[in-house]
Amino acid sequence: MNLKNELQTVHNKLETAKRKLNAAHDRGDTAMISQFNKTVEILTKKLKSVKAQQTKQLSQQGGDVKSLPFSRVLTKQEQADMGKLKKSVKGLVVVHPMTALGREMGIKEVTGYATKEF
């Protein structure tokens, strides 16, 4: 299971446990309250762990892309015909500033990274 799916699964389980915890508080069921408090604590730790893994993986991917020897901002015309550009430049990696990778790298415009000049 990839990290995005795992993150979503853990988040859903956490929300369910919190909802059940609130219901147990309303009923005054102390046994269930303690059980769900433990469950919420465990799921919160797991959620932080998965987010940390995701951040580490993203920063590693950003480092790999930045290590490519050539990069430049893509023109609007190149962005419009991305298929043609990717066919002409082997190994081209395009990073958009609104993606998670783009935000991690801190780019402001659509940028292409490649092993050779294009």
Score class of each variant (00 low, 15 high):
residue 32 M to V: 09
residue 91 G to W: 07
residue 1 M to Y: 10
residue 6 E to P: 01
residue 43 L to M: 07
residue 76 K to E: 13
residue 71 S to E: 13
residue 5 N to T: 10
residue 79 Q to F: 00
residue 2 N to E: 14
residue 2 N to Y: 06
residue 57 Q to R: 10
residue 99 T to D: 12
residue 4 K to R: 06
residue 40 V to R: 04
residue 36 F to K: 12
residue 11 H to S: 13
residue 35 Q to D: 11
residue 88 S to M: 07
residue 81 D to L: 02
residue 101 L to M: 06
residue 31 A to V: 09
residue 49 S to H: 10
residue 52 A to G: 10
residue 21 L to A: 00
residue 5 N to Q: 12
residue 30 T to W: 08
residue 44 T to V: 02
residue 29 D to P: 08
residue 23 A to I: 05
residue 1 M to W: 10
residue 7 L to P: 01
residue 86 K to N: 06
residue 107 I to M: 04
residue 17 A to N: 03
residue 42 I to C: 00
residue 63 G to D: 11
residue 5 N to V: 06
residue 80 A to E: 14
residue 45 K to N: 15
residue 81 D to A: 03
residue 79 Q to C: 11
residue 16 T to Q: 15
residue 26 D to Q: 14
residue 10 V to H: 03
residue 12 N to S: 14
residue 84 K to R: 12
residue 2 N to P: 07
residue 34 S to T: 12
residue 56 K to C: 01
residue 82 M to K: 14
residue 57 Q to A: 14
residue 47 L to V: 01
residue 27 R to M: 01
residue 4 K to N: 11
residue 95 V to M: 05
residue 63 G to A: 10
residue 32 M to H: 09
residue 20 K to V: 05
residue 3 L to K: 10
residue 90 K to H: 10
residue 62 G to T: 08
residue 13 K to M: 14
residue 8 Q to G: 00
residue 81 D to P: 03
residue 40 V to A: 09
residue 17 A to S: 07
residue 40 V to F: 02
residue 52 A to K: 12
residue 49 S to Q: 12
residue 17 A to L: 02
residue 38 K to H: 12
residue 117 E to A: 12
residue 110 V to H: 04
residue 24 A to D: 03
residue 4 K to E: 11
residue 43 L to Y: 09
residue 21 L to P: 03
residue 61 Q to R: 13
residue 28 G to E: 05
residue 113 Y to N: 05
residue 10 V to G: 09
residue 47 L to T: 01
residue 83 G to I: 04
residue 3 L to E: 09
residue 107 I to Y: 00
residue 97 P to A: 01
residue 118 F to Y: 11
residue 101 L to T: 06
residue 107 I to G: 02
residue 11 H to I: 09
residue 26 D to P: 00
residue 66 K to M: 14
residue 111 T to E: 01
residue 15 E to G: 03
residue 33 I to F: 06
residue 61 Q to S: 07
residue 73 V to P: 07
residue 58 L to C: 08
residue 88 S to L: 06
residue 105 M to C: 07
residue 55 T to I: 11
residue 60 Q to D: 15
residue 116 K to L: 13
residue 48 K to L: 13
residue 3 L to N: 11
residue 71 S to G: 00
residue 40 V to S: 03
residue 90 K to T: 13
residue 14 L to A: 04
residue 63 G to S: 12
residue 68 L to T: 02
residue 112 G to E: 02
residue 108 K to A: 04
residue 99 T to S: 15
residue 61 Q to L: 14
residue 44 T to K: 09
residue 8 Q to E: 12
